[in-house]
Amino acid sequence: MIRLEDVWRTYTVGESEVDALKGVSLEIARGEHLALIGPSGSGKSTMLHIVGCLDRPTRGRYLLEGREVGSLSEDERSHLRRHRIGFVFQFFHLLPRLSALGNVELPMLFAGTPAGERRERAAAALDAVGLAPRAAHRPDQLSGGERQRVAIARAVVMDPAVLLADEPTGNLDRASALEVMSLLEGMNRRGLTLVVVTHDPAIAERARRVVRMSDGEIQGTGDRGPGTGNDPGLPGARCPDPEPRDRG
C-alpha cells in the first residue's frame, strides 16, 4: 500500500547539501503496525512527511495505493492528505481557541462536510477515544494524554487508510503513553495502517515490525512476527537494500 523506492531527500543549506534520506526503500502493507526508530536526526520525520504527502522526495519514487505521489498536483496531494492520511504529532497541534469537538471537526470543515454531520462524526470520534465528556473543553483544559487522544480522534475522523504518528508519546508520561498506544493499536487491529516514529524501545516493541534508521538510511528491519495482535496473514516486509550506500 505504501512503497518507497530509492527515495532521497536532500536539503540545501546555504552552500552545502544535507541528505536527510539516502536511498530509502520500504514497503508497508495495508493494516501493518510499523515502528520507525533511530537516533535523532536520522531522517525518521523526513520519511514520515514524505509518506504523508507533506513533502516530496528529491529523487526516487513514492507510491501510495499504487499512485505515484511525486507526479501529483498540490491539490491532489492535499486531497490525499484529507482523505487517506491521518497525522498525529508529538506536540499535538490542537488549535487552542477551539474546543475538543471543534478540533476534531477541523478536517471535515475543509472537506466541506455539512455542519450537522460534522458534529455527529466528531462526537463519535471523540467517543471512540473516550473523551465524549470532554467535548466542550479547550485544549488548555485537558491533560497531555487527553490532548493526544483528541488529536487521534481528529486524525481518524476522516477514516483514513494510514495513520502516521511522529513521536506521539514523546511528550507524555508513561501511563498516558500506554493509553495512547493501546488506543492506536486498537485502531490498527480494526484495519488502520499504523506507522509510529518513536524513541522509546518499549513503545517500539509493541509494533509488529520495527524499522531502524540511521543517518538517512534504513539499518535493518526487525520483523517481530505475529503476536501483537496483528493479522497473522499479512506479508512481512523486507528491507530491500541492505547495503549501505554513499552518494557520488
Partner: peptide
C-alpha cells in the same frame, strides 16, 4: 497553517 495543510486544507 502547517496543521491545516497536514489535515488536507488546499492552498
Amino acid at each position: 497553517i502547517g496543521l491545516l495543510k497536514a489535515l488536507g486544507a488546499r492552498d
